[in-house]
């Protein structure tokens, strides 16, 4: 029985990795000017480097792909955890307002430190490194608010959870808009583009800012993933098994908020990935979270890379924020889920 699960998992993962490689391939070869695979390999392996190719690959396309991959991974993982903890298939960090909380806090940060820091790169790498910390604070505040408003009779009320999430994200959205209006014009434009979820101004410092968060938090989450299986039981049963429910949930939730903040601070708010990826993963590898978690991470990666490819090519040379592409792809799937799930 377990063996069967495991082989299904490995087959799925190989297929997903194939899909990711394919997405990377079309993303890296297409763009303002197309490149062949051979060009890319020769550039990557430093066989016949030319400045043009170096610039396009190392400064534009590669960082963008890496960020798309990391953001997808983070959101896929965080979505799985949030759905697992709340026992709610419709929960998603975006819908719950955690993204918006992190976003508002980062907009505040941008406002006080003037955007130039974040844009101009190397000389201000410090502020980019600090951004996720601010994001974390905002995400944390959102999560605390959600808990306060949906906590009744010693447990989280699922219906209230989503509603307060919607309310909180609207509130933080309004706050972000308000603050961004106080910014200088150029900053304002940056901020709006960033808020709707985009990664086309990617660079290596953003990646550097993200990596420590993922390196520390993802292993913690993965170690605790088996607990998510238990969390699918109802509260009394879990407690009666001797699981320190509140403590374990807090660790998992805080770690996810950290992951989300790291993602939001580089890409803005990209919704629906955290919702869709876990569902597809469960369809593919079953309900065990030790399998769901990596599968969901891989699906998230694929979705964001692929959506970003669409975002840059559909209306080229105009860029569409990737968050909007994801929303257009994600909403129909969300509605489909809503129709399928029982009340």
């Amino acid at each position: 029985m377990h063996k069967q699960n495991r082989s299904r998992f490995f087959i799925t993962m190989s297929a997903l990795i194939g899909a990711i490689l394919f997405a990377i391939y079309i993303h890296i070869t297409n763009g303002t000017f197309d490149m062949s695979v051979k060009d890319i390999f020769t550039t990557l392996l430093r066989m016949n480097p030319t400045n043009d190719f170096d610039l396009v690959i190392f400064e534009f396309r590669l960082p963008r792909i890496v960020i798309a991959a990391l953001v997808g991974l983070g959101l896929g993982i965080a979505g799985t955890v949030v759905q697992g903890i709340t026992r709610n298939g419709l929960a998603d960090p975006g819908i719950l307002g955690i993204n918006a909380g992190a976003g508002a806090s980062i907009v505040i940060f941008m406002f006080f430190f003037q955007m130039e820091l974040a844009v101009s790169g190397s000389s201000n790498w410090l502020s980019i490194i600090i951004m996720p910390i601010f994001g974390f604070l905002g995400g944390l505040i959102a999560a605390i608010l959600i808990y306060i408003f949906s906590w009744t009779n010693g447990k989280l009320d699922t219906q209230r959870l989503i509603l307060s999430g919607i309310a909180i994200s609207t509130g933080f959205g309004a706050l972000s808009l308000y603050i961004s209006l106080k910014m200088r014009e150029s900053d304002f434009e940056m901020a709006t583009v960033w808020m709707s979820g985009s990664i086309y101004n990617a660079n290596w410092i953003f990646i550097l800012a993200m990596i420590p968060w993922l390196l520390i938090l993802v292993p913690i989450i993965y170690r605790k993933a088996y607990l998510l299986d238990y969390f699918q039981l109802e509260e009394s049963s879990i407690k009666s098994l001797g699981i320190q429910v509140e403590k374990e949930k807090a660790i998992l939730l805080l770690s996810s908020i950290g992951v989300i903040s790291a993602c939001v601070s580089v890409s803005g708010s990209i919704g629906f990935i955290g919702l869709i990826a876990p569902h597809i993963a469960k369809q593919l590898v079953g309900i065990h979270h030790r399998y769901v978690l990596p599968a969901s991470a891989a699906i998230g990666m694929f979705l964001v890379i692929f959506s970003d490819y669409l975002a840059k090519t559909i209306f080229a040379p105009a860029e569409i924020p990737v968050g909007i592409i994801v929303a257009i792809l994600g909403v129909p799937y969300f509605l489909y889920l809503l129709m399928k799930t029982k009340a």
Binding site: Q232, L233, E234, S237, K239, S240, L241, G242, Q244
Partner: peptide, 17 residues
């Protein structure tokens, strides 16, 4: 709580899985 769980088990009123 884990030590308690080795001595005492509860079947709750409407368990879900």
């Amino acid at each position: 709580t884990k030590a308690i769980a080795k001595q005492l088990a509860l079947l709750s009123q409407n368990p879900e899985a």
